[in-house]
């Protein structure tokens, strides 16, 4: 037989055997997958930011098909995506509660003390490893802008050594909150009007030495809050946003003015 023909036939035969094998296997070992899952995956933004609480967009799509996830969890996608999801699943549309990142530190250069001159690698993660960074306060903003680097929408900047988040640009993905070594950034529903600009768990006297605008745990806000929404734990006031009505009374009485409340312009979250 012609050797060229023989070679062609041999390879074709091997290919055919493989093809038959694969076809049979895909029929025999067919796994039923919900085609809605692929549709859902397509309408999600694909940023894999994790703000829905699942492992990426694939995980959220799978959970949606499984029926144990709400349709309004995708924060970057907003109402558009929520509407598409509820259309695909055939369930009533729910508003997305938009999230916004807030920074729990107000210790800029002019109001806080330094404990050392840091000249190392200019990232928060690196600065944190050297005695907790430059600032005297071990809980506050390190000020090298790891959050600003990861922000996909340029909503974060470092001003006077403190991270400031532009709520108009913030898409609420929480990337900054995850990267912050001191965990001073958190994401809250965009309806929040009162925030505590301090994360220090030091005792009141220590806080006063290090920073003019730190929470000293005086409990004044706790006593004065008409909704009992504030509790002081570990020398730090914490607001329960489920109870907070946003009246802003705590901000008026706060001894060190570390609680900021807003008029409803939305710019207060500096």
């Amino acid at each position: 037989m012609n050797p060229i023909l023989f070679a062609i036939l041999a390879v074709a035969a091997i290919g055919a055997i493989c093809a038959v094998m694969l076809t049979v296997a895909s029929k025999v070992m067919y796994v039923h997958t919900d085609e809605r899952e692929a549709d859902l995956r397509d309408c999600l933004p694909g940023a894999n930011c994790g703000s829905c609480g699942y492992a990426g967009c694939d995980g959220y799509a799978a959970a949606l098909v499984g029926g144990d996830a709400k349709t309004n969890l995708c924060v970057p996608g907003g109402d558009d995506v929520s509407r598409q999801i509820s259309d695909i699943l055939g369930v009533p549309f729910e508003d997305v509660i938009e999230q916004v990142a807030i920074c729990h530190c107000g210790g800029s250069y002019d109001v806080s003390e330094k404990k050392l001159e840091y000249q190392g690698i200019m990232t928060c993660a690196a600065a944190k490893t050297l005695y907790g960074g430059e600032s005297a306060c071990a809980y506050g903003c390190l000020g090298y802008g790891d959050c600003a680097v990861v922000c996909p929408n340029n909503a974060v900047c470092i001003e006077d050594g403190v991270a400031r988040i532009n709520p108009r640009r913030c898409i609420g993905c929480g990337a900054c909150a995850r990267v912050c070594p001191n965990k001073i950034i958190s994401t809250v529903p965009d309806t929040v009007r009162v925030i505590i600009k301090c994360s220090s768990c030091d005792k009141g006297a220590d806080v006063r030495k290090k920073c003019e605008v730190g929470c000293i745990g005086c409990r004044k806000c706790e006593k004065e809050c008409p909704e009992s929404a504030i509790t002081v734990t570990n020398n730090l006031a914490v607001i329960d946003y489920d109870k907070c009505s946003g009246c802003g009374h705590c901000a008026e009485v706060c001894t060190t003015k570390c609680i900021k409340a807003a008029d409803f312009s939305g710019v207060f979250r500096n």
Partner: peptide
């Protein structure tokens, strides 16, 4: 040629089997 063919088919087969 044959190796590429066989390896590709094999990996595909294994993937189907693993999924199941």
């Amino acid at each position: 040629v044959v190796f590429i063919l066989v390896i590709a088919a094999l990996v595909q087969l294994v993937e189907i089997a693993l999924k199941k």
